[in-house]
């Protein structure tokens, strides 16, 4: 009897035909909508003219890459992209992590639920709308300056044209807008932690704080790792839409990013090829980042994100 069961188990465990079938739809969708358009990448090596198409446009080798690398604003845009993206990635995980841990400690469930709903609200708004509000709040005669002046007697600061503060405003507002999203994911992971583990910890005399430290955090670490590695994939997407609607000439030194640069390229003169080259360059850099972080994580904790 036991033998039959064992045999059955073995057979079903190693039968993978069903698994292939399950993957089929995703494979097809990916082939059509992700791989098929990749033929367009040859554009980055051409002087692409839409009317001539991919077949007749002139091939120029790496000229487009040379062109974007020598653009005067390329260097500052590249550096800014890294700085902004780096802080956005770190904070957009750290802040929701703290929020979700705090939420998990809340006893009153109505409060917990309401807060959870409310922190999600900014996520629904588009940047076009939020930018208007943020510019109002941080204006020279805006609320923030009023508060600083009246409560702390600080001279008003022209935040919006300040190369010292504006980048921080960009990062902080982005983290604020998106924090509901990751909070929900992390909270899902926290509620998923095996209750028996807490019980065991309590039996061992662990305080609440110790429980968080030794039970909750290690249990949700995989989710945090996933979010971090996925975030690193977007290291060169520092938030185009937001910056486009919020920046101004005076703070360009500190917040101009690759994507806004490409946008200006495209608008200025239909430089499809230069834009494609920039895209390919971004892909390569992101790939390196994810690869390295994946590898580090795998070496350190034997955890595979993919």
């Amino acid at each position: 009897m036991a033998d039959v069961k064992k045999q059955k188990k073995k057979r079903s465990l190693y039968k993978t035909r069903e698994l292939h079938i399950m993957l089929l739809p995703a494979v097809i969708f990916t082939a059509i909508f992700a791989y098929l358009p990749m033929f367009g990448l040859i554009m980055a090596f051409q002087d692409f003219k839409p009317l001539l198409g991919f077949t007749k446009s002139e091939f120029v080798g790496f000229e487009q890459f040379a062109y974007i690398f020598t653009m005067p604003s390329f260097r500052s845009a590249f550096v800014n992209t890294f700085i902004i993206a780096f802080f956005k990635i770190i904070l957009s995980i750290l802040v929701p992590l703290i929020l979700s841990l705090m939420l998990n400690e809340v006893v009153k469930s109505w409060f917990k639920r309401s807060v959870q709903t409310i922190v999600f609200i900014p996520y629904f708004f588009s940047w076009a709308i939020l930018a208007g509000m943020l510019l109002e709040i941080f204006a020279y005669d805006g609320i923030i300056n009023n508060v600083l002046e009246n409560l702390f007697h600080i001279e008003p600061i022209a935040f919006l044209v300040s190369n010292k503060y504006f980048r921080t405003i960009i990062i902080a507002s982005d983290v604020w807008k998106g924090m509901g999203y990751n909070t929900v994911l992390l909270l899902a992971a926290i509620t998923n932690v095996d209750a028996a583990l807490y019980e065991a910890a309590r039996v061992d005399g662990a305080s609440r704080w110790e429980q968080v430290l030794h039970v909750t955090l290690p249990s949700i670490l995989p989710m945090v790792a996933v979010l971090t590695v996925l975030g690193l994939g977007g290291i060169l997407n520092a938030g185009f839409e937001q910056i486009l609607v919020m920046y101004n000439p005076t703070v360009e030194k500190t917040v101009d990013i690759l994507d806004t640069l490409v946008y200006r390229l495209g608008i200025a003169g239909h430089q499809y090829s230069a834009a494609a080259a920039m895209g390919l360059f971004k892909s390569a850099v992101s790939l390196i980042f994810v690869g390295v972080s994946y590898w580090i994580l795998y070496k350190k904790s034997d955890y595979r994100v993919f």
């Binding site: 990916t30 992700a34 358009p37 990749m38 367009g40 990448l41 839409p50 494609a276 895209g279 892909s283």
Partner: peptide, 21 residues
Amino acid sequence: YMVYFAITMFIGGGLIPTYMV
């Protein structure tokens, strides 16, 4: 399979080729 899917996270064909497809 994983490699096949993961590649698409970083490399895209761009707007015009996708439009043509």
